[in-house]
């Protein structure tokens, strides 16, 4: 039995400890917001926070999170400035990568409330978006970070 905390609740799962956290979240705990994109830590679609750090849940064996605190997209409040900025900037296209993008961005802002473009490049480059929403993601992070969005985009 593996015991850990997900979005503030204690959860117990009876699975082989080598099972990636991603599949435990999705298949055992019904939390489908974290996505499967590559299974190799290459795309960031599965990003969650483990004890406050952004991690790729597809390559994190669930045995390793025993006793730890996991936060998924479902645990980010609807009124989080980043979620609001994501809507204001109309970031999402297909939307598949966006939970992972937001989890990486939340971790970035937790550490650096007003990130520079270089901070965004390094914090967000592990998250692929096949729909190419990078420009809007950058603007949304700047907007949520209290910095005015750079020129060249749209405002709704």
């Amino acid at each position: 039995m593996i015991v850990f905390n997900v979005n503030g609740k204690e959860r117990r799962v009876d699975v082989s400890p080598d099972t990636p956290l991603l599949w435990v979240l999705r298949e055992k705990l019904g939390l489908n917001g974290s996505k499967f994109g590559c299974g190799e830590g290459l795309c960031g679609a599965c990003t969650v926070h483990i004890d406050g750090y952004p991690q790729r849940s597809c390559i994190t064996p669930v045995g390793d999170v025993q006793g730890k605190k996991v936060v998924t997209i479902e645990g980010i409040p609807e009124n989080h400035p980043l979620k609001k900025a994501w809507l204001a900037q109309e970031v999402s296209q297909c939307g598949y990568c966006q939970p992972g993008q937001i989890m990486s961005a939340v971790a970035l802002l937790d550490k650096k409330p007003k990130p520079t473009d270089a901070d965004i490049d390094s914090a967000m480059s592990g998250n692929l978006c096949r729909c190419g929403t990078y420009g809007r993601i950058r603007r949304a992070i700047h907007a949520a970070g209290g910095k005015s969005a750079p020129k060249g985009g749209k405002e709704l």
Partner: peptide, 12 residues
């Protein structure tokens, strides 16, 4: 106009 499907896409 804002997309009607955006909210569902950012909360999983």
């Amino acid at each position: 106009f804002h997309r009607l499907d955006s909210p569902a896409k950012i909360n999983g």
